[in-house]
Design a protein around this nucleic acid. Structure first.
Length: 870
RNA sequence: GGGGGAUUAGCUCAGUUGGCUAGAGCGUUUGACUGGCAGUCAAAAGGCCACCAGUUCGAAUCUGGUAUUCUCCA
């Protein structure tokens, strides 16, 4: 069965059991501080399990793209070495939110596996939770009893808390789970060793394919468990593993999920799997990583040097490195795999198809850049080797290459071993650990437990309609970090504060108690759909009602910028073309930033057109038309623009100004006229194929024009009212350059003349042309003069003294030939004469200077210098 | 968010413990050789050594800050 068919069968099966099929959520997360990527099927539904929101249907099914690069069983560095670990994988899931429980979950899982896709019943084992005394938890007898209706008792295994009790995190919903394992070994192997004994033993052919989690408890902050008011089912089946079982192969990489990519890698690199272990690993690594990276870029997460983007960069670089080392690829090639991937998965994930060009370009650019880094690193490593005595390269040096220049440590190790050198690995690890500890210490945040004042299921956001409200604090907690110090996080029953999201900054403002006490809200954020207000301190009493007031000025400026962002988006699509897609935005009160896909520089004419377009919409005084709570499908049908990589709920909000219509949760002006004016302040590239525009509106635009005009007027005034300042300045610059040259020439000439005059003053002492004199020149001129006098002569000894700003300066020049023949040294001369001017100095043997604070001593020095020659 | 680098001619980069009036290759311009091109040879132009402070007799070089950029960690 083809993988595409497997996916379809699964979703259709659960649809027939009254589940709604939902699209995969983005792989990259935006409002969860504890997680960067969706690493399990349940992540997009966290808010439902936490009770912060309710799904439209209590039964859902989906295939979720997931990314795992760390964790106890999945280290990035291990992927590719075996046949069943991946960075990116799909998780098929069926979900019950307070609906069906163990009975149906188990029955349907069994039905799907054995009747729909027809997995051999005799290869299946299931496990149930055996109980745990320390937690006071009993064996999951209920699951056991249900399973016995489907499968022989001998195939049911007890599992411990580690394997069979699932928890979302340190706190929150949790419960026992039941795993389904499949043994796909050959008949001989099965006869030799009982499959039951290999379950959960990391055997590559006796594997867990499906985990059914029964959420029935809630883990409290103090570690104790309470029963959940309603019970949920969360299941996750590894899509690639299921394909392996159904396609009768023994490696995920031998399924049609991976084979097209792997064949393409072989073709492009002229390599062949099965020849060496290293080639096999490299091909698997590349096939796996190109998927992870492509899907991330499609979700709007580009490779970068911080945060989630850095994780993506690391994955891609690992693939490049394997190609570089084991497949001998010295040119970008991974980008060529994108079209294979799109052909294969574009149907199930339309975002891939839509973003194909961008993905290809970004990967190619990233490859080229890393190959340059490798080239530089190779040169640096050669230097390190050349400067290493003995046969061991120090860990510090290797770490410097890695940390500062991005040269991979395994490549260093490989090259050293080829040259019969050793690497001090312990030293490297120690340096790495030090760096990690430093980073951790710098970002450590201590979070206390929530203090619940009031149970309140959902916090209502009323900030679209009002900026002031009477609110109650429902819970609060304290956090402490090195950066911000102590902060309090407050949650209200309802709030007018807009939380950071959709590129828009969170609101600021204050809380006021009836007695007049004021607590400032310095920022508002969203965490798992919960709106959190940050304050430096708590009110004296957290009980009672507060007047919550949003900072109007910041909000209205931000709203103007946000609406302008929509108009800019519209203008760019109109003027540059509909290939323009939003790739990120940052809306502050001060300015706005808009990143979008476009493959060449935006010309200044185009920028002006865009600016004019936006300003025309502003002058049209378009009113805000807002729709709340309409369905996603309907919004799209009406022409609203949705963003890739954004997670949308079932009910969405649309914002329309004239012909601009977007799905958006942000705050906007009532009328485009409120923006006053729109002005682009910069345009540039942020990555291959991504441009960034920064712009300002309203007050900021006015201030901008005021100050620019003022500066311009000053320029004009300085130019005495010249009508064409640009021309005037250009000619001034030209003139200035010409004058500089003239002055230079004159100074040379002057030095020439002066040296001519001074040459007449030379005193012949024992065949040496000697001159000691006080002159009125600066240090540079004296140097010039001395070299000029010494030119074409080999017997010159000069000492010049000068007084500059109350300080004394002595300069001594001695022809190189004299230095050698008479064993003289200008450095020694000035150092010794320096005592007369209460200073010191030095230089080279043939030219040296000394400075001091006693100008009166210059004459004495000039007299004494003769002693060096007689 | 926390570290570590880098920034020198149009481009790619050297520049040792602070000290020769800052160099190379490529490119540009000019000239010579050649019937023309390619090429070879010769010469020239091209630098606020990122910016701002500081230390020093003296800073491309050392210190602090700013900007840009690369890189590692979180």
């Amino acid at each position: 069965m083809k993988s595409q068919e497997v996916r379809k069968q699964f979703l259709e099966f659960f649809k027939s059991k009254n589940h709604s099929i939902v699209a995969s959520a983005p792989m990259v997360l935006k409002d969860d501080p504890t997680l960067m990527f969706t690493n399990a099927g349940m992540v997009p539904f966290k808010e439902y399990f936490l009770g912060n929101a309710t799904p439209k249907n209590s039964r859902l099914t989906d295939t979720q793209k997931c990314l795992r690069v760390s964790g106890k069983h999945n280290d990035l560095e291990e992927v590719g070495k075996d046949t069943y670990h991946h960075t990116m994988f799909e998780m098929l899931g069926n979900w019950s939110f307070g609906d069906y429980f163990k009975e149906e979950a188990i029955a349907w899982a069994w039905e799907f596996l054995t009747e729909v896709v027809k997995v051999d019943k005799d290869s299946i084992y299931v496990s149930i939770f055996e109980g745990d005394e320390s937690e006071g938890l009993e064996r999951d007898q209920e699951a056991y009893d249900i399973w016995t209706k489907h499968i022989d008792e001998s195939r049911i295994i007890n599992g411990n808390k580690k394997d069979n009790f699932w928890e979302m995190g340190a706190q929150g919903p949790c419960g026992p789970c039941s795993e389904i394992h499949v043994d796909i070994r050959s008949a001989e192997e099965k006869a030799a060793v009982d499959g039951k004994s290999l379950v959960n033993m990391d055997h590559p052919l006796v594997i867990e394919i499906w985990n059914l989690v029964f959420m029935q408890y809630n883990r409290l902050a103090n570690g104790s468990l309470t029963k959940l008011p309603s019970q949920h089912v969360d299941t996750g089946m590894g899509f690639e593993r299921l394909c392996m079982v159904l396609q009768g192969v023994q490696s995920n990489y031998d399924t049609d999920v991976f084979t097209p990519l792997m064949r393409e890698v072989e073709t492009i690199t002229s390599s062949k799997c099965g020849e060496t272990e290293e080639t096999d690993i490299a091909v698997r690594v590349i096939a796996d990583h190109v998927r992870a990276v492509s899907f991330s870029i499609a979700d709007g997460q580009l490779p970068s040097n911080t945060g989630a983007g850095y994780v993506i960069r690391r994955i891609l670089r690992r693939a490049i490195r394997y190609g570089f080392t084991f497949l001998d690829t010295k040119e970008p090639f991974i980008y060529k795999l994108v079209s294979t991937l799109v052909n294969q998965m574009g149907d199930a994930f339309p975002e891939l198809e839509a973003q194909k060009n961008l993905i290809t370009n970004v990967i190619r650019e990233e490859e080229a850049s890393f190959l340059r880094t490798l080239d530089k690193g190779l040169i640096l490593l050669d230097n390190v080797i050349a400067n290493t005595s003995g046969d061991t390269v120090s860990g510090d040096k290797a770490f410097e290459l890695y940390d500062t220049y991005g040269f991979p440590i395994d490549l260093t190790a490989l090259i050293l071993s080829e040259k019969n050198l050793k690497l001090d690995e312990a030293g490297f690890e120690a340096a790495l650990k030090e760096q990690k500890d430093r980073s951790r210490a710098a970002t450590k945040v201590e979070t206390d437990d929530w203090n619940i004042l009031q149970e309140d299921s959902e916090e209502e956001f009323i900030g679209y309609d009002t900026l002031e409200a009477s609110v109650k604090i429902t819970r609060y907690r304290k956090t402490e970090s090195k950066k911000d110090g102590e902060l309090y996080q407050l949650v209200f029953n309802l709030t007018p504060f807009y939380p950071e999201g959709g590129g828009q900054v969170g609101d600021k403002g204050y809380l006021e108690t009836p007695s007049g006490e004021v607590v400032y809200i310095i920022d508002t954020k969203k965490e798992n759909n919960l709106i959190i207000h940050l304050a430096k301190n708590l009110p004296r009493s957290t009980e009672g009602t507060f007047k919550a007031v949003v900072d109007v000025k910041q909000r209205s400026r931000t709203a103007a910028n946000h609406t302008a962002t929509h108009l800019l988006h519209q203008g760019l699509r109109k003027i540059l073309g509909t290939h323009v897609e939003q790739k990120g935005s940052m809306v502050h009160s001060r300015n706005l930033r808009f990143d979008f896909s476009h493959f060449s520089k935006v010309t200044s004419e185009e920028l002006k057109e865009v600016e004019d377009f936006v300003n025309a919409r502003i002058r049209e005084n378009l009113s805000l038309e807002e729709q709340r709570g309409i369905s996603y499908d309907q919004a799209i049908q009406e022409g609203a623009i949705a963003l890739f990589g954004e997670k949308y709920g079932d009910a969405v909000r649309t914002i329309r100004f004239g012909k601009s219509m977007e799905l958006c949760g942000g705050t906007h002006v009532k009328n485009t006229g409120d923006i006053w004016h729109f002005k682009i302040t910069s345009e540039g590239a942020v990555a291959s194929g991504i441009r960034r525009i920064e712009a300002i509106t309203s007050d900021a635009a006015k201030d901008y024009f005021t100050s620019e005009t003022e500066a311009y007027n000053q320029v004009k005034a300085t130019l005495k009212g010249n009508q064409d300042p640009v021309k005037a300045i250009t000619s001034l610059l030209d003139e200035n350059a010409a004058l500089k040259k003239q002055v230079e020439a004159l100074i040379k000439e002057k030095a020439q003349n002066l040296s001519g005059d001074l040459a007449k003053e030379f005193e012949d002492i024992d065949g040496v042309d000697f001159l000691a004199k006080k002159v009125d020149l600066d240090a540079g001129a004296i140097k010039d003069l001395a070299f000029k006098l010494g030119e074409n002569k080999d017997n010159v000894f000069l000492l010049f003294g000068t007084e500059q700003n109350g300080k004394a300066l002595l300069s001594c020049y001695i022809s190189k030939e004299l230095v050698a023949s008479k064993n003289l040294n200008a450095g020694t001369v000035v150092r010794e004469l320096g005592k007369h001017i209460q200073g010191g100095g030095g230089g080279q043997p043939f030219f040296a200077t000394a400075g001091g604070k006693n100008p009166a001593g210059i004459d004495a020095a000039i007299v004494e210098v003769k002693n060096y020659l007689v």
